[in-house]
């Protein structure tokens, strides 16, 4: 995989954030995902960053997209590395190189269309009726779509969808 200069810079920033890592495994030892699913190991992710491994594999679905974002590793890392945040940064890069799981495309599309992630299903609305809950004021979709446009979300989303075809 070839990375653009911009992405290489972003990668360098990531290296700077993790360079104090000495592979003690505290992150893995407390990781709820690693405990159940050994292919995702945050220590191994750090190891690859330290080694300057910028192959596509590191952005693979078996790697970073398994992180639940619970921040347990960040809380406990003895070297004070915000591992969870670093992995999130990596996900941002992964999106740029069109390496994202389908679930995220669905979610972003939902926000683009409705402003929220959960669908207003008929059964949900029926439950609300039954519970006599008030209607929730809907968000201004022109605003949401404008913001998603100017922050480049729509373009990225389209690129991902194009790629999926």
């Amino acid at each position: 995989m070839t990375l653009t200069t911009e992405l290489k810079e972003e990668f360098k920033d990531l290296y700077d954030k993790v360079k104090l890592c000495y592979q003690c495994g505290t992150c893995a030892g407390g990781c709820p995902v690693f405990k159940q699913y050994s292919s995702f190991n945050p220590r191994r992710v750090m190891e690859k960053l330290l080694a300057g491994d910028i192959s596509a594999e590191i952005f693979d679905e078996q790697q970073i997209w398994y992180c639940t974002g619970c921040y347990t590793c960040s809380t406990r890392c003895p070297q004070g590395i915000d591992i969870c945040h670093v992995i999130n940064d990596m996900k941002n890069i992964a999106v740029k190189i069109k390496n994202a799981p389908p679930g995220i495309i669905t979610e972003m599309t939902a926000i683009l269309e409705t402003g929220i992630t959960a669908a207003k299903s008929t059964s949900a609305l029926r439950k609300r009726d039954k519970l006599e809950l008030p209607e929730i004021p809907p968000p201004d979709m022109t605003e949401i779509q404008k913001l998603m446009e100017v922050t480049g979300v729509i373009a990225k989303l389209n690129a991902l969808k194009e790629d999926a075809k």
Binding site: W65, T68, G69, N88, D89, K91, N92, V95, A100, G103, I104, E107, M108, I111, G115, I116, T117, P137, P138, P139, D140, I144, L147, M148, T151, G152, V153, K156
Partner: peptide, 18 residues
């Protein structure tokens, strides 16, 4: 009339600035 917060997992992972 709030929209999605937005989701700290999905949206943040997609694009931090967005």
């Amino acid at each position: 009339p709030f929209a999605c917060c937005p989701d700290p997992g999905g949206v943040q992972a997609f694009d931090s600035v967005a």
